[in-house]
Amino acid sequence: MTEPPQQTAAFEGLTTLRVTEGADRVHVQLHRPAVRNAIDAVMVAELHQVCAELERHPRVLILSGTESGGKGVFASGADIAELRERRRDDALAGINSGLFARIAALPLPVIAALDGFAQGGGAELAYAADFRLGTPRLKIGQPEAGLGIMAAAGATWRLKELVGEPLAKDMLLAGRILSGEEALAVRLVTELHHPARLLPAAHALADRITAQDPLALRLTKAAFRAPREAHPLIDNLAQGILFESEAKSERMQAFLDRRENPRGP
């Protein structure tokens, strides 16, 4: 899909992000190339602004990085200059973890298109997405312990769920950085593409997602995120809502019509 460049008032004045809107998706490019897209307080605030808009008007979100010095960069991590000055109360405020939880909870799916460095907070941002696509030059991991801190924005639990405990410990405690091929082998990313094809692949995935019923997507994502003890009640309630929707009747009737007339009109 080729998007015409658009920007509504909701995204005016952003300095660390470049936003392109479509009717059914929003593409957000992290854009601090001089510091390899390090996530600073301004970027955090602007990503919250994006979340607020997508909570009001749900659309698929595509997150990507930039080219820096001829190399791809998703996000090299939190801004070290800011991080060095943070203290206990900053940690307790959950500056990054709160943002990433909000991104993970967006109504419709989030796609992270990962090229080059996705490390530290950049990797944790990627873990919060529903889908991760990569390139062969991807380098993803958690170097925090080498800086005297820990990965505290989701990696200690999301990474274990994504790749399993042994590899998660290797990344968190021994600083292992995965290549694109290694990330694909453990399904941390589901596809690898040449850098020039990464965004088209993300949009192709968004096309597949947006072909589904929006309400069914929202309720399925909500049910998927619910704790084990909430099932099957939450599934039954969500299905009850969908069974009463017009889209369910229309889509099922269209399916039956295609089966009866496979060649169409």
Results as ranks from 00 to 15, higher is better:
A41D: 10
R36V: 11
V42I: 11
R18F: 12
V42L: 11
Q49N: 08
D24S: 15
E21P: 10
V26M: 06
V44K: 01
V42N: 04
H48C: 00
E53D: 13
L30I: 09
V35G: 09
E53S: 08
L30N: 06
Q29D: 09
A45H: 00
V19E: 05
R25H: 12
V35D: 12
D24T: 15
A52C: 09
G22Q: 14
A52T: 12
A41F: 10
R32N: 14
M43C: 03
A38W: 06
L54V: 06
V42D: 10
E53M: 03
I39L: 13
H31T: 06
P33F: 10
C51N: 04
T20C: 13
C51F: 03
R36Y: 13
Q29A: 14
R25Y: 06
Q29K: 14
I39A: 03
D40T: 01
D40N: 12
D24C: 12
D40C: 01
L30G: 09
N37M: 06
L54N: 00
M43P: 01
R36Q: 14
V26G: 06
D24N: 14
A52I: 05
L47W: 02
T20V: 15
V50A: 02
L54F: 02
H48R: 10
A38F: 09
A23V: 15
A34L: 13
R18D: 12
E53H: 08
L54S: 01
V50W: 00
R32D: 07
R36G: 08
P33D: 05
Q29H: 07
M43R: 05
L30W: 02
Q29S: 11
Q29W: 08
L30M: 04
L30R: 08
G22S: 15
M43Q: 05
H48S: 04
V19L: 09
I39S: 04
V28A: 10
P33K: 05
V28P: 00
L30K: 08
R32H: 09
L47M: 08
A52S: 13
E53L: 00
H27P: 05
V44S: 01
A41M: 07
R18S: 13
G22K: 10
A34S: 15
C51P: 04
D40V: 06
L30A: 06
H31E: 05
Q49V: 01
N37C: 04
L30Q: 06
D24E: 15
D40A: 08
T20D: 15
A38N: 05
I39E: 04
V28D: 05
L30C: 07
A23F: 12
R32E: 05
V19Y: 07
D24R: 14
V26C: 09
E53T: 05
L30V: 04
